[in-house]
Every structure is written in structure tokens, then in C-alpha cells.
Design a protein around this nucleic acid. Structure first.
Lengths: 192, 192
DNA sequence: TCGATTGTCTAGCGGTGCTAGGATCGAAGG
DNA sequence: CCTTCGATCCTAGCACCGCTAGACAATCGA
């Protein structure tokens, strides 16, 4: 059975290569540049190989998104853990979120702007996505305020961050005020 | 000169037809379905005619966006004017914004999600976009709070609304809590 | 009436996501 | 060791995309 195991290992390695390459290409030149032909050429296989791993381009985007969700959750937890006190924790969380969106725009797009065929706010939501939301919730729970459902509060806070992230990147907000916007948002939304 | 005037009128009418048809098609089947071929067929002209009015598909999206910005500004002003007191005004504004995004998703996408070649937060920003931001500012000015720049406050509030609008439509937020999210957002952000 | 200009269309270019079908290669059985 | 056979991969091609060159017809001014 060792032969078959080796093949499966190789196959899994190639799948990781596809996802990693798609991500690279997307970060370098944007998702529009991630065509099945270019992607296939970069991994040095022909196009149909991609379709033996994924149903289509959408699923590849989804795979990048899941990978990104895990990293994002880790980044947010690390930032929150390094801060003292509720207010500082929330600020650090917000900065980490926006930082991730700014540093990895392609991954952020895969997660929240493009259609990666992922299901949200549902039982069938993949674990990494649930976990990213949980990472937000952990820190925001303590500043939701009395009588306010922490889940609801997290949704609103998340939406605000998402709005800042997307509008900033699209050049629809003045870049120099980014930090002031974060402070205003945290000061107003979080109940300390 | 009357012949030339007639021709210009007809040309302008056809341009309006293009924009209106693109919008219709986008609302019916999404922007992906708005191809130059389909659009040309619907207006009963050949493809190249589109390019005698617009540089490309992107500019058509931009035209739909500008049209939408004017309507959105009017809707927000009407909603705010019909409410009494700062808190009610801001709530009405937020509802009007989210309502517009939900009712006209294609127009909202043209405005804020797709690349319509429009410039934001700049001197060259088209008037309808400036005016839509002004409509937000007018109502939010009175609830920005002491020592907070109304423009900055408006950006943050707008970003929050944008986040709610996009995440809701993408199925990333539970639909049934929409109203509660608006209330929470307004209660926290607006200083009355 | 004739030439020039304007307007529109047909046809086609290089690209996209995706797939059918044939070639090739390696593992298992005689 | 050789042969068979199944898995694996690639070539070639589909229908569609945004966009444009160049042919053609209609209209205008001289």
C-alpha cells in the first residue's frame, strides 16, 4: 500500500502547490490575473490538472480563503493577547484586522469580496471561518455592553471593520486618517 | 442646424438607453450577465455602437453608478427630512442607505464594489458622488460629537453601513437581525 | 449629381473558464 | 520478464468574453 500512500502524498502536495501559487499570483497581480492557464503554467502542469483537484476557479479561491481565515484568526488572537485591558485589546484587534486586509488584499478578497463558494453564518460554515469569527468574538465579548448580544455586537463591529478595509483599499477614504478612524470606531462602539 | 440638433438628441437618448438597459440587465441577472453582446442585442444595435458612447464596459458601470448616486442621495435626504430629532434622523438615514443597497444591489455594486473608473475622495470626484457623501454628512454632522471632525465621523459611519450592506448581501450576516444591528450601530456611534 | 463624411455593421483577434478524448506511463498478474 | 490494464496527464477545442479594424451604406454639402 506504500505506493498508493506516496501517490496520495504527492497529490496533496500538488494541491497545496496550486493553492499557494494561486495566492502568490493573486497578491502579485490581483485575482484577475489568476487565470487557469497562467496558474497551470506556474505549477508546470496542464490546465485539466487543476480540475482534478478543484471543481473550478471558484473552489481555488475558496481554498485560499480558508487558508487566509486561519492566519487571520491567529493574527487577531496574537494582537489581542499582547494588549492589556479591554480597550487596548479591542484597538489591537481592529488594527490587526485592518492590517491583515491591507497586507494581504488578495487573501482578504478571497475571504470576503469574491465568491469562493463558501457558506457563512450557517451550520455548514467551514471551521476556519467559524474560528475567525470566534477570534473576533473572544475579544469583543467583554465590550459588547449590558443587554447586548455579543454575537450581534461582533457582527456590527466586524461590518464596520470590513467597511473600513474595503473602502480604504478602493481609494474611497483618505489614507492619512486611518488611525483616527480606528480610534473613533473603538471609542464609540466598545463599552469599557 | 436643426438636423444636427436632432441627431445629438437621438444620440443622447441612445446613451440613456444604454445605461438604463445595462442597469436593468444587472438588476435582473447580476453584472456578470451584462456582457457587451447581450447589452448590444437588448438595445438592438451592434456591439461597436457601445464603444462610440463609452470607452468600455467599465465606463458603462461608472455611468450607472453616477445615476445611482443621485438617487441614493435623494433617498437619504428624503428619509432624514421625514424624521424628527437627531436620533430618528440618523436611524432613518441608515435605514434608507441599507434599503437602497438591498433594493438596488446592482446599482450599489456599480457604486462601491465594482471598478467603474470613478475617483473618490478627491477634487476630481464627480459631483453626484460628492453630493451623496454630502447627504450623509448633513444628517451626521449634528451627531458627530464634540471635538470630532464631522467628515471623519461620516467616513466611519459610512464604512459601517457599507460593511453591513455588503456582508448582509453576501449572506455573511443573519438576515433576521438586520434591524437590531442598525439600532445598535446608531445608538453607539451617534452622540445625541 | 458627385464626393466626402458620418454612422453602423460584419468579422475577427486574443483572451477566458472549462472539458472530451487520446496518449503515455507505471503497477500488477501470468 | 513481459504484457495487460487502469490511472494520469496533455492536446485540442468548445462557447463565451471585451474590444476593434475595415467594409459598407446612408446622408450631407458643394
Amino acid at each position: 500500500m506504500s505506493v498508493q500512500e506516496r501517490k496520495e502524498r504527492e497529490r496533496a502536495a500538488r494541491e497545496r502547490l496550486i493553492v499557494a501559487t494561486a495566492r502568490e499570483l493573486a497578491e502579485e497581480q490581483g485575482w484577475d490575473a489568476v487565470t487557469t492557464r497562467r496558474l497551470a503554467e506556474r505549477i508546470e502542469y496542464s490546465q485539466p490538472v487543476l480540475y482534478s483537484h478543484f471543481r473550478g476557479k471558484r473552489e481555488i479561491i475558496g481554498a485560499v480563503a480558508l487558508e487566509g481565515a486561519t492566519e487571520m484568526a491567529a493574527a487577531m488572537r496574537a494582537a489581542a493577547a499582547a494588549a492589556d485591558g479591554p480597550h487596548a485589546r479591542v484597538t489591537a484587534l481592529a488594527r490587526a484586522y485592518l492590517d491583515f486586509a491591507a497586507r494581504s488584499p488578495a487573501v482578504y478578497d478571497a475571504l470576503f469580496r469574491l465568491d469562493g463558494g463558501l457558506v457563512f453564518a450557517d451550520e455548514e460554515t467551514p471551521q476556519p471561518l467559524k474560528d475567525a469569527f470566534a477570534a473576533l468574538l473572544e475579544t469583543l465579548d467583554e465590550v459588547a455592553g449590558d443587554g447586548v448580544d455579543p454575537g450581534l455586537f461582533t457582527e456590527v463591529f466586524w461590518a464596520a471593520l470590513h467597511g473600513l478595509a474595503t473602502l480604504s483599499r478602493a481609494g474611497r477614504l483618505l489614507p492619512e486618517d486611518a488611525e483616527r478612524r480606528v480610534e473613533l470606531l473603538v471609542d464609540r462602539l466598545a463599552v469599557v
